[in-house]
Structure formats: C-alpha cells, structure tokens
Amino acid sequence: MALNTPQITPTKKITVRAIGEELPRGDYQRCPQCDMLFSLPEINSHQSAYCPRCQAKIRDGRDWSLTRLAAMAFTMLLLMPFAWGEPLLHIWLLGIRIDANVMQGIWQMTKQGDAITGSMVFFCVIGAPLILVTSIAYLWFGNRLGMNLRPVLLMLERLKEWVMLDIYLVGIGVASIKVQDYAHIQAGVGLFSFVALVILTTVTLSHLNVEELWERFYPQRPATRRDEKLRVCLGCHFTGYPDQRGRCPRCHIPLRLRRRHSLQKCWAALLASIVLLLPANLLPISIIYLNGGRQEDTILSGIMSLASSNIAVAGIVFIASILVPFTKVIVMFTLLLSIHFKCQQGLRTRILLLRMVTWIGRWSMLDLFVISLTMSLINRDQILAFTMGPAAFYFGAAVILTILAVEWLDSRLLWDAHESGNARFDD
C-alpha cells in the first residue's frame, strides 16, 4: 500500500549564491595573561575582544583620537594649579581661619623630617597626573615632529594605576569627618577644581587605549598563520617573532617567553612588605597634641575612634588600611606557593584573586592621604596640633611594595603550573 505524501511548494523562490571570495581570516594573537594562541577576527570600533580561555580583555573598544586626548590633557593642565594650590577646605580653629590644600599637606610631611613619605604622596597625587598630561601632550606634538614615541607609550600603561586623584578625593571626605570634632569646616574653591580634575582624569584614563596608539604610530604586520613560536610582548602586546637582537619589532624591548626574574622580584617585594606591615600596624601612625597632652593612634585605634562619629567612614578606612593590605599579602603568598608547588586545582579562583588584588591594591594609600591633609588643617603649635607617627613611612612603603609585587608577577606562570593543553579552566 503506497502512502500519498503531499508536496510542499515554497511560496518564495530560494536563491543560492556561491561564495565568490575567501572568507576573511583572523590574525593570530597570544593572550598576555595566559599565553593562549588564538585567531582574533577583525574588530570594529566600539567592540571589545576577550581571550577565549581566561576571559582577559585583549582589545578595548573604547578609543579616543589623539586630538581629543590632547584637549583633555590641556584642560587638566589648566585645572591643576587651582586643584593643588587653592584651598580645598576652610576650618575655623580657636577663632582663626585655616586653609588646607594639597601642596601644603605634602610640605608639612616633608617639613617634619619625613621627606620619603611626603614624596610618596607627591608622586601619586601630583607627579603621576602631571606625567600623564605631559605624556599625552608629548605624543600629540611628537607625532607631528617625527619624534620617538616608544618610551612614552611604554610608560603610559604602567602609569595608570599610580594616578590616585580619586583616592585622594575620598581622603578629603575622611579628613573632614575627623577634623569636624575640633573645628567648623567649609569647602574651599580649590575643592571644585579638584573634583573637576578627578572627573576629567577618570574619563581620560578610561578612554586612553595605549594598544590602539601603538597600532597608529607603529603598525606591524600581524601573524596570519598559526605558529607556536609566536611570542607576545608584555610592553606593547604585539604578537610576532623577535628581531635579530631578540627584541620586539614594535617597542624594541627584549621579547622573552616569560617575564625575567618574575618570581624572585615578586618574592622579594612580598617578604619586604610583610616585614614592614608589622611596625606599620604596631607603631603610632598619627599623633595629636591637645592642650599640651599627647595622644597617639595606631591604624586600628584611629579607626575605632573614627567609628564613634561615623561608622560608615570608619568601615571604608578599615577596608583600605587593614583589610586590603593583608588580603593582598595572603593572596600573593598563596599564588606564589601554588606556582612553586605546581598546583593544578582552583586555577579559576587564583586568576580571579590576582585580578582582584590588581584592582584594589592602590586604595591602601588612602590613610597616607588623610594624614597629609589633616596635617595641613590642624597645626596650632602646642594648643592643638596633628602630626604623623613613625608607622606612616612603614605603611606607605608596604603598600608600594605590594603594588610592585602584583605588577611583577607574570600571570602566565600560573598556567605553566597548571596542566598543559587546557582550553578551559575551572575549579
């Protein structure tokens, strides 16, 4: 018995066209964080690309023209004298008006014999932002004059995390709450300039795509075929072959399989920071003279006294001054041990922890910024005066060393310790 099946006739004509040209192939790229070699397709503007294995951002879609970056830099340069030299806060102490600005706080630190601690604050609040705007201006002028731009481009990517104007702005709020127990506070004209400078700096850093600047100024022929001998440069993120001198053909720094002496430098910085954190938390970090009496505060006791007036601000200072430094030390110690013992479990967790400490590390400088600003506000000789204690130097040095330890660690070593050939990683 035959089955009668109805015929289905399409209502619209289906047209099949042959592909007349070869589909576009992607360029081969190595991930600078996990060293995976993959094919990167062509990316349009405002599109980002991520590593298929570790999800690290390979290409950032946010990109401004150099002219727009230069305009932002010149605007920031105009704001800087007002943000640093004009009063941020006014207080009335014992019937006398006192003005506080950024430069005055750094000068008070240096004047009291601790120039190293003052230079830490100076670099993060004044030096690094000033280098940022002058570097962008150098790129703008240098591109037109045919100057060598490689050193500036190499420095810009590392400079971003040292620009800490946003953290200093939080420190202004913390210092205001600490001082309000002794005097009446009012915002100064410099505060508005400083807030504007923070906003412009944040926007500029978020749109400063150094890798795209490398592509514009020093374009290189990408690798179009897969080759395990391809290496990625950690300076400019170019994937290719080393030249005859073993250097990256684009930025001219040595092109090595792994960062040289990464573990040794990381261990040295980490152990030194552990040693410095002990006096930083045991010795007094601030000293207040009130009517001839002397009151010393460690980091913890200062947080407890701050909690009596504002528990939320005390929580912020606790996280930045105690929780973050010790968390960074514990995480980095764990990561280094996992590399030495070739741990194969929990790779995803370790990668996330490394990215976390990379982002939060700079916030530990908050305590030094609060001390710097408070020193310029309260300084009335023996009637009422505020000065920093010996722990300030140890704390600042420990924070900087932990930042350097994270920067010096080559994250690809975590993958080397893991089993080879993993296309995915999980716990």
Score class of each variant (00 low, 15 high):
residue 259 R to I: 07
residue 63 D to C: 15
residue 283 L to A: 11
residue 146 G to L: 03
residue 197 L to R: 00
residue 312 A to Y: 14
residue 54 C to N: 00
residue 230 L to E: 13
residue 298 T to K: 09
residue 46 H to K: 05
residue 295 Q to C: 10
residue 186 Q to T: 10
residue 326 F to M: 06
residue 82 F to M: 11
residue 159 L to W: 01
residue 402 T to D: 07
residue 198 V to K: 14
residue 18 A to V: 07
residue 284 P to N: 01
residue 206 S to R: 15
residue 315 G to F: 12
residue 181 D to Q: 02
residue 279 P to Y: 04
residue 58 I to H: 06
residue 241 Y to D: 12
residue 294 R to D: 02
residue 63 D to S: 15
residue 193 S to A: 14
residue 1 M to P: 00
residue 115 A to N: 04
residue 75 T to M: 08
residue 180 Q to H: 11
residue 162 W to N: 01
residue 85 G to I: 03
residue 204 T to K: 09
residue 179 V to A: 05
residue 89 L to M: 06
residue 176 S to N: 07
residue 167 I to W: 03
residue 423 A to R: 09
residue 113 G to W: 09
residue 218 Y to Q: 09
residue 164 M to W: 04
residue 10 P to A: 08
residue 387 T to R: 07
residue 24 P to A: 08
residue 128 A to T: 14
residue 244 Q to C: 11
residue 369 F to K: 05
residue 212 E to L: 15
residue 225 R to H: 11
residue 42 E to L: 05
residue 113 G to N: 14
residue 10 P to K: 04
residue 12 K to T: 06
residue 200 L to D: 12
residue 357 V to G: 03
residue 63 D to T: 15
residue 145 L to S: 06
residue 114 D to V: 05
residue 291 N to W: 15
residue 263 L to R: 14
residue 54 C to A: 00
residue 230 L to V: 14
residue 1 M to Q: 00
residue 257 L to R: 06
residue 199 I to G: 10
residue 56 A to S: 09
residue 19 I to Q: 09
residue 347 L to F: 12
residue 99 D to V: 05
residue 276 L to Y: 06
residue 85 G to M: 04
residue 361 G to K: 01
residue 282 L to D: 05
residue 368 L to E: 09
residue 185 I to V: 04
residue 104 Q to V: 07
residue 184 H to L: 05
residue 83 A to D: 03
residue 411 S to G: 06
residue 313 V to S: 13
residue 348 R to G: 13
residue 411 S to I: 07
residue 29 Q to F: 06
residue 68 R to A: 01
residue 176 S to T: 10
residue 145 L to F: 12
residue 369 F to Y: 09
residue 15 T to K: 10
residue 75 T to R: 00
residue 166 D to G: 15
residue 28 Y to Q: 12
residue 318 F to V: 07
residue 7 Q to I: 05
residue 60 D to S: 09
residue 402 T to P: 06
residue 169 L to V: 11
residue 202 T to A: 10
residue 272 A to T: 13
residue 186 Q to G: 07
residue 134 T to C: 12
residue 382 Q to V: 10
residue 351 I to E: 10
residue 176 S to K: 02
residue 385 A to Y: 01
residue 202 T to D: 15
residue 348 R to L: 13
residue 341 F to R: 13
residue 73 A to N: 08
residue 326 F to G: 09
residue 60 D to Q: 05
residue 327 T to N: 07
residue 24 P to Y: 09
residue 190 G to Y: 01
residue 269 A to R: 01
residue 356 M to Y: 09
residue 185 I to N: 03
residue 326 F to W: 09
residue 155 M to Q: 14
residue 264 Q to R: 02
residue 30 R to D: 02
residue 384 L to R: 00
residue 86 E to W: 02
residue 64 W to H: 08
residue 108 Q to E: 06
residue 161 E to N: 10
residue 141 F to S: 02
residue 282 L to M: 13
residue 315 G to I: 14
residue 176 S to W: 06
residue 360 I to K: 00
residue 424 R to E: 09
residue 335 L to P: 04
residue 10 P to T: 10
residue 365 M to R: 00
residue 206 S to Q: 14
residue 25 R to K: 05
residue 80 M to V: 06
residue 43 I to K: 11
residue 318 F to D: 01
residue 226 R to V: 14
residue 327 T to K: 13
residue 267 W to G: 14
residue 198 V to D: 12
residue 307 A to W: 15
residue 284 P to A: 15
residue 255 L to V: 05
residue 330 I to Q: 09
residue 271 L to M: 12
residue 413 L to M: 12
residue 246 G to W: 11
residue 67 T to S: 04
residue 41 P to G: 04
residue 45 S to V: 07
residue 59 R to W: 07
residue 61 G to S: 13
residue 193 S to E: 02
residue 423 A to L: 10
residue 53 R to L: 08
residue 387 T to F: 06
residue 31 C to Q: 00
residue 321 S to L: 00
residue 279 P to S: 15
residue 69 L to A: 11
residue 165 L to V: 12
residue 12 K to S: 06
residue 374 T to F: 01
residue 323 L to C: 15
residue 235 G to C: 07
residue 344 Q to S: 11
residue 45 S to Q: 07
residue 55 Q to E: 08
residue 210 V to W: 10
residue 125 V to S: 14
residue 215 E to M: 14
residue 116 I to P: 12
residue 404 L to T: 06
residue 23 L to Q: 07
residue 412 R to G: 02
residue 217 F to T: 15
residue 27 D to V: 07
residue 249 P to C: 12
residue 203 V to G: 14
residue 391 A to E: 02
residue 162 W to R: 02
residue 188 G to E: 13
residue 10 P to W: 07
residue 355 R to N: 13
residue 157 E to D: 12
residue 338 S to N: 14
residue 26 G to V: 09
residue 343 C to N: 15
residue 2 A to R: 06
residue 178 K to E: 03
residue 200 L to C: 15
residue 210 V to M: 14
residue 235 G to R: 02
residue 299 I to S: 09
residue 179 V to I: 08
residue 362 R to L: 02
residue 293 G to H: 06
residue 261 H to N: 10
residue 17 R to A: 08
residue 237 H to G: 11
residue 210 V to K: 15
residue 370 V to L: 02
residue 6 P to A: 07
residue 410 D to K: 00
residue 390 P to Y: 06
residue 266 C to F: 05
residue 142 G to A: 14
residue 146 G to A: 06
residue 414 L to Q: 05
residue 335 L to V: 11
residue 206 S to T: 14
residue 84 W to V: 07
residue 257 L to Q: 07
residue 294 R to V: 05
residue 119 S to E: 02
residue 240 G to L: 07
residue 121 V to M: 13
residue 214 W to T: 15
residue 33 Q to V: 11
